[in-house]
Design a protein around this nucleic acid. Structure first.
Lengths: 155, 155
DNA sequence: AGTCTTGAAACAACATAAGTTACATGATGG
DNA sequence: CCATCATGTAACTTATGTTGTTTCAAGACT
Protein backbone atom coordinates (compact mmCIF):
# COMPACT_ATOMS: atom_id res chain seq x y z
CA UNK A 1 0.00 0.00 0.00
CA UNK A 2 1.12 3.48 -0.60
CA UNK A 3 1.45 5.19 2.72
CA UNK A 4 -0.86 7.74 4.26
CA UNK A 5 0.47 11.28 3.92
CA UNK A 6 -2.37 13.15 5.59
CA UNK A 7 -0.50 13.81 8.82
CA UNK A 8 2.55 15.11 7.00
CA UNK A 9 0.46 17.33 4.76
CA UNK A 10 -1.56 18.82 7.57
CA UNK A 11 1.55 19.68 9.56
CA UNK A 12 2.96 21.34 6.50
CA UNK A 13 -0.18 23.40 5.96
CA UNK A 14 -0.66 24.43 9.56
CA UNK A 15 2.83 25.85 9.85
CA UNK A 16 2.43 27.79 6.64
CA UNK A 17 -0.92 29.11 7.85
CA UNK A 18 0.74 30.38 10.98
CA UNK A 19 2.96 32.64 8.88
CA UNK A 20 0.17 33.58 6.51
CA UNK A 21 -1.83 36.80 6.62
CA UNK A 22 -5.58 36.32 6.50
CA UNK A 23 -7.46 33.22 5.45
CA UNK A 24 -6.05 30.64 3.04
CA UNK A 25 -8.41 29.10 0.52
CA UNK A 26 -8.54 25.40 -0.23
CA UNK A 27 -7.34 26.18 -3.71
CA UNK A 28 -4.27 28.04 -2.49
CA UNK A 29 -3.47 25.29 -0.02
CA UNK A 30 -4.01 22.63 -2.68
CA UNK A 31 -1.53 24.37 -4.98
CA UNK A 32 1.02 24.36 -2.18
CA UNK A 33 0.52 20.67 -1.49
CA UNK A 34 0.35 19.74 -5.15
CA UNK A 35 -3.08 18.28 -4.74
CA UNK A 36 -6.76 19.05 -5.13
CA UNK A 37 -8.91 21.55 -3.18
CA UNK A 38 -11.43 18.82 -2.38
CA UNK A 39 -8.73 16.67 -0.82
CA UNK A 40 -7.75 19.67 1.29
CA UNK A 41 -11.30 20.23 2.51
CA UNK A 42 -11.75 16.56 3.20
CA UNK A 43 -8.61 16.32 5.28
CA UNK A 44 -8.97 19.68 7.02
CA UNK A 45 -12.50 18.75 8.07
CA UNK A 46 -11.02 16.60 10.81
CA UNK A 47 -8.90 19.47 12.06
CA UNK A 48 -11.86 21.83 12.04
CA UNK A 49 -13.91 19.42 14.12
CA UNK A 50 -11.23 19.48 16.80
CA UNK A 51 -10.93 23.26 16.65
CA UNK A 52 -7.39 23.40 15.25
CA UNK A 53 -8.64 25.38 12.28
CA UNK A 54 -11.82 27.18 11.32
CA UNK A 55 -13.30 27.77 7.91
CA UNK A 56 -15.43 30.52 6.43
CA UNK A 57 -17.36 30.66 3.20
CA UNK A 58 -17.66 33.44 0.71
CA UNK A 59 -15.46 36.36 -0.24
CA UNK A 60 -12.40 36.59 1.95
CA UNK A 61 -13.23 33.18 3.34
CA UNK A 62 -10.98 30.17 3.69
CA UNK A 63 -9.07 28.53 6.49
CA UNK A 64 -7.54 30.04 9.63
CA UNK A 65 -5.72 28.61 12.59
CA UNK A 66 -7.96 27.97 15.57
CA UNK A 67 -5.17 28.17 18.13
CA UNK A 68 -1.43 28.87 18.29
CA UNK A 69 1.01 26.25 17.03
CA UNK A 70 2.41 25.93 20.54
CA UNK A 71 -0.90 24.37 21.55
CA UNK A 72 -0.95 21.64 18.93
CA UNK A 73 1.14 18.48 19.12
CA UNK A 74 1.86 15.93 16.42
CA UNK A 75 -0.39 13.60 18.37
CA UNK A 76 -3.27 16.08 18.18
CA UNK A 77 -3.00 16.29 14.43
CA UNK A 78 -2.53 12.55 14.07
CA UNK A 79 -5.79 12.06 15.94
CA UNK A 80 -7.51 14.81 13.97
CA UNK A 81 -6.78 13.13 10.65
CA UNK A 82 -8.47 9.99 11.90
CA UNK A 83 -5.72 8.09 13.69
CA UNK A 84 -4.79 6.12 10.59
CA UNK A 85 -3.19 2.72 11.11
CA UNK A 86 0.43 3.27 12.06
CA UNK A 87 1.80 -0.03 10.79
CA UNK A 88 1.83 -1.51 7.32
CA UNK A 89 2.61 -4.96 8.71
CA UNK A 90 0.14 -6.99 10.69
CA UNK A 91 -1.47 -10.31 11.46
CA UNK A 92 -3.05 -12.49 8.79
CA UNK A 93 -6.10 -13.04 10.96
CA UNK A 94 -7.39 -11.09 13.94
CA UNK A 95 -9.21 -13.84 15.80
CA UNK A 96 -7.42 -17.05 14.81
CA UNK A 97 -8.66 -20.40 16.04
CA UNK A 98 -5.17 -21.85 15.72
CA UNK A 99 -3.21 -21.65 18.95
CA UNK A 100 0.05 -21.29 17.05
CA UNK A 101 -1.31 -18.29 15.24
CA UNK A 102 -2.56 -16.89 18.53
CA UNK A 103 0.93 -17.16 19.96
CA UNK A 104 2.39 -15.52 16.87
CA UNK A 105 -0.13 -12.69 17.04
CA UNK A 106 0.60 -12.19 20.71
CA UNK A 107 4.32 -11.89 20.08
CA UNK A 108 3.85 -9.47 17.22
CA UNK A 109 1.17 -7.42 18.96
CA UNK A 110 3.35 -6.96 21.97
CA UNK A 111 6.19 -5.60 19.87
CA UNK A 112 3.96 -3.42 17.71
CA UNK A 113 2.05 -2.01 20.63
CA UNK A 114 5.25 -1.10 22.39
CA UNK A 115 6.57 0.66 19.29
CA UNK A 116 3.27 2.45 18.73
CA UNK A 117 3.22 3.57 22.33
CA UNK A 118 6.69 5.04 21.94
CA UNK A 119 5.76 6.72 18.68
CA UNK A 120 2.59 8.33 19.97
CA UNK A 121 4.25 9.29 23.20
CA UNK A 122 6.85 11.11 21.19
CA UNK A 123 4.19 12.67 18.98
CA UNK A 124 2.59 14.03 22.11
CA UNK A 125 5.76 15.80 23.12
CA UNK A 126 6.40 17.67 19.87
CA UNK A 127 4.40 20.82 19.20
CA UNK A 128 4.01 22.43 15.83
CA UNK A 129 5.80 25.42 17.29
CA UNK A 130 8.84 23.17 17.73
CA UNK A 131 8.75 22.31 14.05
CA UNK A 132 8.25 25.97 13.12
CA UNK A 133 11.33 26.80 15.14
CA UNK A 134 13.29 24.18 13.25
CA UNK A 135 12.01 25.72 10.03
CA UNK A 136 13.31 29.12 11.16
CA UNK A 137 16.70 27.59 11.82
CA UNK A 138 16.78 26.01 8.37
CA UNK A 139 15.70 29.33 6.90
CA UNK A 140 18.58 31.07 8.63
CA UNK A 141 21.03 28.55 7.18
CA UNK A 142 19.62 28.69 3.66
CA UNK A 143 18.36 32.24 3.13
CA UNK A 144 18.22 31.79 -0.63
CA UNK A 145 15.68 28.98 -0.59
CA UNK A 146 12.10 30.00 -1.14
CA UNK A 147 9.28 27.53 -1.47
CA UNK A 148 5.83 27.95 -2.93
CA UNK A 149 6.84 31.31 -4.33
CA UNK A 150 4.11 32.95 -6.29
CA UNK A 151 1.40 30.92 -4.66
CA UNK A 152 0.85 33.52 -2.01
CA UNK A 153 3.01 31.73 0.54
CA UNK A 154 6.01 33.26 2.20
CA UNK A 155 9.16 31.24 2.36
CA UNK B 1 -3.69 -0.05 2.27
CA UNK B 2 -4.33 -3.47 3.49
CA UNK B 3 -1.44 -4.46 5.67
CA UNK B 4 1.29 -6.93 4.86
CA UNK B 5 0.74 -10.30 6.50
CA UNK B 6 3.78 -12.14 5.18
CA UNK B 7 5.74 -11.99 8.42
CA UNK B 8 2.83 -13.24 10.45
CA UNK B 9 2.14 -16.06 8.02
CA UNK B 10 5.72 -17.23 7.85
CA UNK B 11 6.04 -17.34 11.63
CA UNK B 12 2.87 -19.38 11.76
CA UNK B 13 4.14 -21.83 9.18
CA UNK B 14 7.61 -22.22 10.62
CA UNK B 15 6.34 -23.17 14.04
CA UNK B 16 3.96 -25.71 12.59
CA UNK B 17 6.76 -27.14 10.48
CA UNK B 18 8.83 -27.63 13.60
CA UNK B 19 6.17 -29.97 14.97
CA UNK B 20 5.55 -31.65 11.66
CA UNK B 21 6.96 -34.99 10.59
CA UNK B 22 8.61 -34.94 7.19
CA UNK B 23 8.27 -32.32 4.50
CA UNK B 24 5.23 -30.09 4.12
CA UNK B 25 4.01 -29.35 0.63
CA UNK B 26 3.03 -25.88 -0.54
CA UNK B 27 -0.50 -27.15 -0.94
CA UNK B 28 -0.73 -28.36 2.64
CA UNK B 29 0.73 -25.14 3.94
CA UNK B 30 -1.60 -23.09 1.75
CA UNK B 31 -4.60 -24.93 3.18
CA UNK B 32 -3.40 -24.13 6.67
CA UNK B 33 -2.95 -20.45 5.84
CA UNK B 34 -6.17 -20.22 3.84
CA UNK B 35 -4.30 -19.12 0.77
CA UNK B 36 -2.77 -20.38 -2.45
CA UNK B 37 0.21 -22.71 -2.95
CA UNK B 38 1.82 -20.20 -5.28
CA UNK B 39 1.65 -17.51 -2.63
CA UNK B 40 3.33 -19.93 -0.24
CA UNK B 41 6.17 -20.65 -2.67
CA UNK B 42 6.58 -16.99 -3.43
CA UNK B 43 6.86 -16.01 0.20
CA UNK B 44 8.90 -18.99 1.32
CA UNK B 45 11.41 -18.29 -1.45
CA UNK B 46 12.85 -15.52 0.70
CA UNK B 47 13.25 -17.86 3.66
CA UNK B 48 14.91 -20.48 1.51
CA UNK B 49 17.42 -17.97 0.24
CA UNK B 50 18.47 -17.24 3.82
CA UNK B 51 18.60 -20.92 4.72
CA UNK B 52 15.72 -20.92 7.17
CA UNK B 53 13.94 -23.54 5.10
CA UNK B 54 14.83 -25.86 2.25
CA UNK B 55 12.65 -27.24 -0.50
CA UNK B 56 12.69 -30.47 -2.47
CA UNK B 57 10.84 -31.43 -5.62
CA UNK B 58 9.06 -34.64 -6.47
CA UNK B 59 7.50 -37.41 -4.41
CA UNK B 60 7.93 -36.82 -0.71
CA UNK B 61 9.21 -33.35 -1.46
CA UNK B 62 8.13 -30.09 0.04
CA UNK B 63 9.45 -27.75 2.68
CA UNK B 64 11.61 -28.46 5.73
CA UNK B 65 13.16 -26.31 8.41
CA UNK B 66 16.76 -25.40 7.69
CA UNK B 67 17.65 -24.80 11.33
CA UNK B 68 16.08 -25.02 14.77
CA UNK B 69 13.52 -22.43 15.83
CA UNK B 70 15.85 -21.30 18.57
CA UNK B 71 18.16 -19.98 15.88
CA UNK B 72 15.60 -17.79 14.12
CA UNK B 73 14.42 -14.45 15.42
CA UNK B 74 11.44 -12.38 14.35
CA UNK B 75 13.96 -10.00 12.86
CA UNK B 76 15.47 -12.77 10.74
CA UNK B 77 12.09 -13.63 9.29
CA UNK B 78 11.15 -9.99 8.83
CA UNK B 79 14.29 -9.54 6.77
CA UNK B 80 13.71 -12.78 4.89
CA UNK B 81 10.28 -11.68 3.68
CA UNK B 82 11.86 -8.57 2.20
CA UNK B 83 11.86 -6.07 5.05
CA UNK B 84 8.50 -4.64 4.07
CA UNK B 85 7.79 -1.03 5.06
CA UNK B 86 6.94 -0.98 8.74
CA UNK B 87 4.80 2.16 8.72
CA UNK B 88 1.60 2.96 6.87
CA UNK B 89 2.06 6.67 7.54
CA UNK B 90 4.75 8.76 5.94
CA UNK B 91 5.83 11.97 4.27
CA UNK B 92 4.03 13.43 1.27
CA UNK B 93 7.33 14.04 -0.49
CA UNK B 94 10.77 12.53 0.12
CA UNK B 95 12.94 15.39 -1.12
CA UNK B 96 10.85 18.51 -0.62
CA UNK B 97 12.15 21.88 -1.75
CA UNK B 98 10.01 23.61 0.85
CA UNK B 99 11.88 24.23 4.08
CA UNK B 100 8.70 23.89 6.12
CA UNK B 101 8.13 20.47 4.66
CA UNK B 102 11.74 19.58 5.34
CA UNK B 103 11.28 20.51 8.98
CA UNK B 104 8.06 18.48 9.14
CA UNK B 105 9.74 15.47 7.55
CA UNK B 106 12.63 15.75 9.96
CA UNK B 107 10.33 15.75 12.97
CA UNK B 108 8.35 12.81 11.69
CA UNK B 109 11.38 10.82 10.55
CA UNK B 110 12.99 11.17 13.91
CA UNK B 111 9.94 9.77 15.66
CA UNK B 112 9.39 7.00 13.15
CA UNK B 113 13.01 5.95 13.10
CA UNK B 114 13.09 5.74 16.85
CA UNK B 115 9.96 3.60 16.89
CA UNK B 116 11.27 1.37 14.11
CA UNK B 117 14.54 0.95 15.92
CA UNK B 118 12.70 -0.17 19.04
CA UNK B 119 10.49 -2.52 17.05
CA UNK B 120 13.32 -4.21 15.18
CA UNK B 121 15.44 -4.37 18.28
CA UNK B 122 12.64 -6.23 19.97
CA UNK B 123 12.17 -8.46 16.94
CA UNK B 124 15.81 -9.39 17.24
CA UNK B 125 15.36 -10.58 20.80
CA UNK B 126 12.43 -12.92 20.20
CA UNK B 127 13.16 -16.36 18.74
CA UNK B 128 10.60 -18.60 17.15
CA UNK B 129 11.33 -21.04 19.94
CA UNK B 130 9.99 -18.43 22.36
CA UNK B 131 6.75 -18.28 20.44
CA UNK B 132 6.59 -22.07 20.26
CA UNK B 133 6.95 -22.18 24.04
CA UNK B 134 4.08 -19.75 24.37
CA UNK B 135 2.07 -21.98 22.08
CA UNK B 136 2.80 -24.96 24.35
CA UNK B 137 1.58 -22.97 27.32
CA UNK B 138 -1.63 -22.05 25.51
CA UNK B 139 -2.03 -25.68 24.54
CA UNK B 140 -1.72 -26.74 28.15
CA UNK B 141 -4.42 -24.27 29.14
CA UNK B 142 -6.81 -25.22 26.32
CA UNK B 143 -6.29 -28.93 25.66
CA UNK B 144 -9.55 -29.18 23.73
CA UNK B 145 -8.60 -26.71 21.03
CA UNK B 146 -7.25 -28.22 17.87
CA UNK B 147 -6.40 -26.19 14.83
CA UNK B 148 -5.99 -27.24 11.22
CA UNK B 149 -7.32 -30.69 12.09
CA UNK B 150 -7.53 -32.93 9.11
CA UNK B 151 -5.01 -30.95 7.12
CA UNK B 152 -2.14 -33.07 8.35
CA UNK B 153 -1.15 -30.63 11.07
CA UNK B 154 -0.96 -31.49 14.72
CA UNK B 155 -2.56 -29.19 17.24
C1' DA C 1 6.68 -43.13 -18.58
C1' DG C 2 3.82 -41.10 -15.22
C1' DT C 3 3.06 -38.59 -11.14
C1' DC C 4 4.27 -35.35 -7.66
C1' DT C 5 6.37 -31.23 -6.40
C1' DT C 6 8.77 -26.78 -6.70
C1' DG C 7 10.05 -22.41 -9.72
C1' DA C 8 8.60 -18.63 -11.90
C1' DA C 9 6.22 -15.61 -15.09
C1' DA C 10 2.10 -13.32 -16.22
C1' DC C 11 -2.20 -11.79 -15.15
C1' DA C 12 -6.54 -10.80 -12.30
C1' DA C 13 -8.73 -9.42 -8.03
C1' DC C 14 -9.02 -6.49 -4.19
C1' DA C 15 -8.32 -2.79 -0.81
C1' DT C 16 -7.30 1.83 0.13
C1' DA C 17 -5.35 6.45 -0.29
C1' DA C 18 -5.67 9.99 -3.40
C1' DG C 19 -7.62 12.55 -7.14
C1' DT C 20 -11.71 14.29 -9.72
C1' DT C 21 -16.30 15.79 -10.94
C1' DA C 22 -20.52 17.76 -9.77
C1' DC C 23 -23.64 20.20 -7.22
C1' DA C 24 -25.62 22.18 -2.94
C1' DT C 25 -25.03 25.72 0.68
C1' DG C 26 -23.71 29.88 2.67
C1' DA C 27 -21.33 34.54 2.77
C1' DT C 28 -19.85 38.79 0.65
C1' DG C 29 -20.36 42.79 -2.28
C1' DG C 30 -22.05 45.32 -5.76
C1' DC D 1 -31.27 40.57 -5.03
C1' DC D 2 -28.16 38.59 -7.82
C1' DA D 3 -23.51 37.36 -9.20
C1' DT D 4 -19.41 35.65 -7.26
C1' DC D 5 -16.54 33.32 -4.20
C1' DA D 6 -15.72 29.80 -1.04
C1' DT D 7 -16.74 25.71 1.68
C1' DG D 8 -19.45 20.93 2.28
C1' DT D 9 -20.30 16.63 0.57
C1' DA D 10 -21.48 12.75 -2.19
C1' DA D 11 -20.13 9.84 -5.88
C1' DC D 12 -16.96 8.28 -8.97
C1' DT D 13 -12.28 7.40 -10.98
C1' DT D 14 -7.38 6.59 -10.67
C1' DA D 15 -3.10 4.75 -8.75
C1' DT D 16 -0.52 1.60 -6.14
C1' DG D 17 0.61 -2.47 -3.81
C1' DT D 18 -0.65 -6.95 -1.58
C1' DT D 19 -2.82 -11.03 -2.53
C1' DG D 20 -4.84 -14.59 -5.44
C1' DT D 21 -4.90 -17.33 -9.78
C1' DT D 22 -3.57 -19.50 -14.01
C1' DT D 23 -0.17 -21.60 -16.57
C1' DC D 24 3.73 -24.01 -17.83
C1' DA D 25 8.65 -25.48 -17.29
C1' DA D 26 11.78 -28.41 -14.74
C1' DG D 27 13.36 -31.65 -11.38
C1' DA D 28 12.64 -35.99 -8.45
C1' DC D 29 10.67 -40.25 -7.11
C1' DT D 30 8.25 -44.76 -8.22
Amino acid sequence: MRHDSRLSRMLHVLIHMDRHEGAATSETIAAMLNTNPVVVRRTMAGLRQKGYVSSEKGHGGGWRLGRPLSEMTLLDIYEAVGEPAVFAVGPACDQPACLVEQAVNAALSEAFEEAEKLLLSRFGKVTLADIARDFDARMARHPALVAHAGAGWHA
